[in-house]
Design a protein around this nucleic acid. Structure first.
Lengths: 127, 127
DNA sequence: GCTTCTCGACTACATCTGTAGATGATTCGA
DNA sequence: TCGAATCATCTACAGATGTAGTCGAGAAGC
C-alpha cells in the first residue's frame, strides 16, 4: 500500500509546510525554509523532517532536480480544507453546518462584510 | 498558576469525555464510562486517565462524594466550541468565516435545511 | 585533485496522546 | 471481622508530534 492521499492526518506543523507548497510549487526544501523558517522560528532541519513526513504520508511528491529534490503537494488545498471543515462540523456540531454558523454568529465572530458575503452566496445557491 | 481554563488544548479523546460531562454533570468516573465505554471501546481505566488529565488541565473540577469523586466541566461547551471554530477559521480561512461557508457550499455539504436555517438566522441578525 | 558546501537520509529526544494495568486505601456485605 | 468490590493514584508503553543534530555522497570552487 504505497501512500494514502488524505488518509493520514496532517499535523499542525506539517500543515504550515503544506501552505507554503500550495502557495507555490514545486519548491526545494531550502525554498520552503526561506518562506517560513523566520516566521515559525525553525531551522532547515525541521523543514526537512516535516517534508519527509509529508512524503511518507503521501501528501507530497518529490521530483529530482539535479542533486536535490523539489517538492509538490499531492493533495489539493480544497480537499484538505474541506476535510478539516467537515471534521469540525461533525465533531462539534452534529454534522449540521448551520449550527456552526449559529455559533459564529453568537460569538460575534461575524462582521458586516461576512454577513453580506454570505447573503450573496446564499442568493447564488438559490438560483 | 493553578489551572488555565481553555488555555491548554483538549485532545480528541478528552473531548469525548467532556461531551459526556456537558451532557450531564456532576458524574462519577463509572457513570462517564457507562456513557461512552461501549461506544469507544474503552475500559474504565482509560476514562479515569482522561479525567485526570482534564483535571490537570483545569478543564474539569472534582468534588468529593463519599469515597469517590464527582466530575464537572469547568469550561462551558460553548466556549470550547467557539474556540475550536475560531481556530479553524483562522488557520484555514484567513479568519474569514464567509470563506468557510463558501467552502461548505462548494463541497455540497449544505442541505436544503441548512440553507433555510441560515437564511432565517441571517434575517434575524439583520433585525 | 582537494577542500568546502549542500543535500537528503537517518537518528535523537522530549512531550503529548491513546490506551490500560498495578497498587493501596476504603467500604460494604456476610 | 474478613474477604470482595470499588476508588483514585501511579506507572507503563507505543505511536504521533515538534524540533533538531549527524553523516555520507556528491557538487562546486580553486
Amino acid at each position: 500500500m504505497p501512500s494514502d492521499p488524505a488518509g493520514e492526518r496532517i499535523s499542525d506543523a506539517e500543515h504550515a509546510v503544506m501552505e507554503v507548497l500550495w502557495g507555490q510549487s514545486p519548491r526545494s526544501a531550502a525554498d520552503v525554509c526561506d518562506a517560513i523558517c523566520t516566521n515559525r522560528d525553525w531551522t532547515i532541519a525541521t523543514v526537512k523532517t516535516l517534508l519527509s513526513r509529508l512524503v511518507a504520508k503521501g501528501a507530497v511528491a518529490t521530483e529530482p532536480d539535479g542533486r536535490r529534490f523539489l517538492y509538490r503537494p499531492l493533495i489539493a488545498r480544497s480537499a484538505y480544507v474541506g476535510g478539516e471543515s467537515q471534521r469540525l462540523v461533525d465533531r462539534l456540531f452534529g454534522g449540521r453546518p448551520s449550527s456552526l454558523f449559529a455559533q459564529l454568529a453568537q460569538s460575534e465572530a461575524l462582521t458586516e462584510d461576512d454577513l453580506a458575503e454570505m447573503e450573496s452566496l446564499l442568493k447564488e445557491l438559490r438560483r
